[in-house]
Nucleic acid binder design. Structure first.
Lengths: 193, 193
DNA sequence: TTCAATATCGAACATTGTGTTCACTTTTGT
DNA sequence: ACAAAAGTGAACACAATGTTCGATATTGAA
């Protein structure tokens, strides 16, 4: 039973479109980019664009999925190396990953970024935090009185809040330092009352 | 030197447009509302609309300015009554004011709300917190190491975070309780280390 | 009450961006 | 080599924005 070979044209076209959108976002911000801009820069026909994506939001989110895959790759690599301690800081990885692609992240999440991506990012962080935290606590007395979903919502909002400050100020401190501030301001107070 | 009497037509038209937008937002959310919807419901000519506002964002912000005035009215009334203690909780007033207009606030700030208003609200809260806090602290040892604008940014994001949770869950707790949670989670940890 | 000023009306128009269609061409995997 | 699949781009339909302008209605002030 053979694998059906994927058509290279599809991969090429989609990647060209994602790259075109990315460079256009860096130039003038997501809102100002039109479908026409994208297909001009990507050298792709109009009907081809719509054969692949519902619209530019869809293309954007497909690019965001790429970023997520890169992040998860890094995450799993690190887990594999430090095989015993799965207690590795998830938040630090977020900050480090952001640093690696900070221009793109700033265009997407900073002032004038794309609200769509901000929402997606927020819900992705929320989901990851939920997974990561459900294992590690559960019996902290300080959290008994606070609804769990509020705690998660608060932690992911706080992370995004520090992240946007960091990006909008062009990374004035290291990833380790901003992560430390995040813990100092949002995480430890909740865990230690 | 007499005051020029204001033309009642202007006030009436602008208020009709604001009211029309508000009711349309409650019905189908800001994004889905078109200028045509607004002028149909307000019974106002198309050119008249554009004689008053650049577009629907502009009209929306003018409505938001109205809300701000209502809030500041309440704020100053309370300051006048409790004449000595200007230590009245600013955040509690935000939550209480939100409760009074919670349907509108939910439509504007909750899931599916208007990103424009969220940004405006965020920057308004930031500005108010800055004014309110600049008097009261200044020499807290825990804050020496954290950039002040990050602290303000964090506090206003946290406030918005709790507010949206509160709205999206249809006010499951009282204004006093959500304010207490805000202090417990975000404010006190910063002030007391 | 009169009246000049000005706000409103609304239909017609120009413009911009979206999304679809389709006959034709090119590329791909086998 | 060749059938299947993907890409092309011009032409279209459409939805919403924003402007223009001559005619009409309302207003504030004398």
């Amino acid at each position: 039973m053979k694998e059906k070979a994927p058509d290279r044209r599809i991969q090429r076209t989609q990647q060209q479109l994602r790259d075109a959108l990315e460079s256009l976002i860096l130039e003038k911000g997501y809102e100002a980019v039109t479908v026409q801009d994208i297909i001009d820069r990507a050298n792709v026909g109009r009907s081809t664009f719509y054969a692949h994506f519902w619209g530019k939001e869809n293309l954007l989110l497909s690019g965001f999925d790429n970023l997520k895959e890169l992040f998860e790759e890094r995450y799993h690599n690190i887990l594999a190396h430090k095989s015993g301690s799965n207690n590795m800081e998830l938040s630090l990885l977020f900050f480090q990953h952001t640093q690696s692609y900070h221009l793109l992240y700033k265009a997407l999440l900073g002032k004038g970024g794309s609200d769509l991506v901000i929402k997606q990012f927020q819900s992705y962080v929320t989901e990851q935090l939920r997974k990561h935290l459900e294992e590690g606590w559960g019996n902290n007395p300080n959290l008994k009185e606070i609804p769990q979903d509020l705690v998660i919502h608060f932690l992911s909002s706080s992370l995004l809040s520090l992240l946007t400050w960091w990006l909008d100020n062009d990374l004035p401190v290291s990833a380790e330092r901003i992560n430390q501030l995040y813990h100092q301001m949002a995480v430890e107070p909740l865990l230690q009352g």
